[in-house]
């Protein structure tokens, strides 16, 4: 199939970017979207031009590295899919496709389609863990976890930290990302002791990193490649209010 691509090119954080147009004559419909970009880059290298920088690694939809906004939608037109799992059979011969990076202030552009998402790591470092010393755990079966709770925790834990939720949100809110981790850890018995401390610290880190607030549009969940539901944000808000209230009367954590 023949395609016209409009790709965001930006040399670095200091310069302005713009959309450049490229034409690809022959793309197999069995190729993945990123394989299509590989073809573009091979073509650019052969023509003596600079290839397009984009983030990608596992190419099987789990590492969360790939991060492209395709025709205005993070990860492209299919629901529940990362860019690397999007295949060209989804497009038509002769299509024009616009490819942009994640757009959000807390994710500054490094080059072309590559952004810096270390603000997500900072949220995790603030409280996205259960404090357990290596070697100090009790036998795994000593803490029974009801199956529905374990399944719920797994639903939340499926988040791959790609940042599409932020890119889709008009407020650049990281609530879905943060809530997924809070919901996973706060719902498990192992995570209860640090429940309040965790939610306060993570929300605080989120605000410090410059992410906006949630205004319940649900774009985040709509583009989430792992289909993390909005209920997670409700859980975050609930846990946050409880922790805030407690902190008025007593020292939390």
């Amino acid at each position: 199939m023949k395609l016209t691509l409009k790709v965001w090119r930006q040399k670095n954080n200091q310069t302005l970017g713009r959309l450049e147009t490229y034409v690809l004559e022959e793309v197999s419909e069995d190729s993945s979207f990123l394989e299509m970009l590989d073809i573009l880059n091979e073509q650019l290298i052969a023509d003596g031009q600079t290839p397009v920088a984009f983030d990608h690694d596992c190419r099987e939809g789990i590492c969360g590295m790939c991060s492209l906004t395709i025709n205005g939608i993070p990860h492209g037109p299919d629901g529940g899919t990362t860019v690397c799992q999007l295949h060209m059979r989804r497009f038509n011969d002769g299509d024009t496709i616009t490819i942009e990076p994640w757009r959000a202030r807390p994710f500054p552009i490094i080059k072309d389609l590559v952004t810096d998402r270390s603000s997500f790591d900072h949220i995790m470092q603030a409280g996205g863990f259960i404090s357990v010393r290596t070697g100090s755990a009790i036998d795994a079966n000593e803490i029974p976890v009801p199956k529905p709770v374990a399944d719920y925790a797994m639903d939340a834990a499926a988040c791959i930290g790609c940042g599409a939720c932020v890119a889709a949100c008009k407020n650049a809110s990281a609530m879905l990302f943060t809530s997924a981790k809070v919901a996973q850890l706060n719902s498990l018995p192992q995570g209860k002791p640090e429940k309040d401390r965790r939610v306060l610290a993570m929300v605080n880190a989120m605000d410090e990193a410059g992410f906006g607030s949630c205004t319940n549009y649900g774009e985040c969940s709509a583009v989430c490649p792992k289909e993390i539901p909005l209920d997670m944000i409700a859980k975050l808000n609930r846990d946050y209010i409880v922790a805030q209230t407690k902190s008025i009367f007593t020292k939390v954590g």
Binding site: V132, A137, L185
Partner: peptide, 22 residues
Amino acid sequence: SAIIDQCVAQGVPFAREYGGLL
């Protein structure tokens, strides 16, 4: 065995039976 204990303590949501055990 200690690896499984460690991971469960960290909050790794392993599959479970209805009785709550792994």
